[in-house]
Design a binder for these strands. Structure first.
Ligand SMILES: [Mn+2]
Ligand SMILES: [Mn+2]
Ligand SMILES: [Mn+2]
Ligand SMILES: [Mn+2]
Lengths: 135, 135
DNA sequence: CATAAAAGTTAGCCTAGGCTAATATATTTA
DNA sequence: TAAATATATTAGCCTAGGCTAACTTTTATG
């Protein structure tokens, strides 16, 4: 197939950066989601949610603390900071729009859930606005 | 925004796996592209193409060799294996469809180039088929 | 309330994917 | 062709994000 687009180191670097943001966005979204049902959000909840070991969650939560997205003391519940809360809500809106857009163009539910989980981190606000208008 | 989708550890793991495939797909696509203009594809070409150091390219090419996507001897040109060639062509087709679909729904060229660089690795063949039919 | 079970933490291991600096080989050019 | 320049490789460093195993703390239960 003929290539109709240009590539640039900037595009590759952007995509890598979005991949790095993925874990932050997915974690705050998960924390927000879990806290709707439970008073406390613990390590073990996230471990089940993501299907990774509690040691991994422990390490990743430290990164979120460093990124000022959550607060947590040893053995205590995890709480979103206001930055974290904002990122959680924005990420959820983005994820919902991508998911609904895929459904709209005819993608089955399961596949739309799969695809949107990754795609959501690579959609500009410009494209998102268009998708929203087409839902 | 109300959540209308379900999440699952499987979806998160899939997205991470797609992120890991990203480097392989982008590299074989780049090698194929560069070899259209030049007889030999060297380390330095990829270094410029991706904007990363030649040491990084050297290390990553070793991974592609391990994955049977390319062959290369010390100080010589890089060549795609038949697996590598197939992956390169498939990846390019996928990338083109995503790019053209974005253009079709009204995304400006630069933004479509940015978005498609990441999105292309997170699109199922089902969704791809729909996008193709809508171009 | 003592103990068992569950959950959290830490240490140490791994691979991926970046980097710089030093060294080795190829290529160009005076 | 000898020297200078360009390119390739290697070593060693870093962070992210996984894991298991051992240990600590909290929570539940007999
Ligand atoms: Mn999400
Ligand atoms: Mn996601
Ligand atoms: Mn591509
Ligand atoms: Mn790409």
């Amino acid at each position: 197939m003929k290539k109709t687009r240009f590539s640039s180191p900037k595009y590759f670097k952007l995509s890598k950066k979005q991949n790095a943001n993925e874990i932050l966005e997915d974690y705050v979204e998960a924390i927000e989601e879990i806290s709707k049902d439970k008073k406390d959000v613990k390590n073990i909840d996230l471990s089940k949610y993501f299907g990774v070991s509690k040691a991994t969650i422990n390490k990743n939560i430290k990164r979120l603390i460093k990124a000022k997205l959550v607060t947590s003391e040893k053995y205590k519940s995890i709480h979103l900071t206001s930055n974290g809360k904002t990122l959680a809500l924005d990420s959820n809106v983005r994820h919902e729009i991508v998911f609904k857009f895929l459904r709209k163009i005819g993608v089955p539910k399961k596949i739309a859930e799969e695809d949107s989980e990754g795609m959501e981190h690579h959609i500009s606000s410009y494209t998102l606005k268009i998708m929203k208008s087409l839902i």
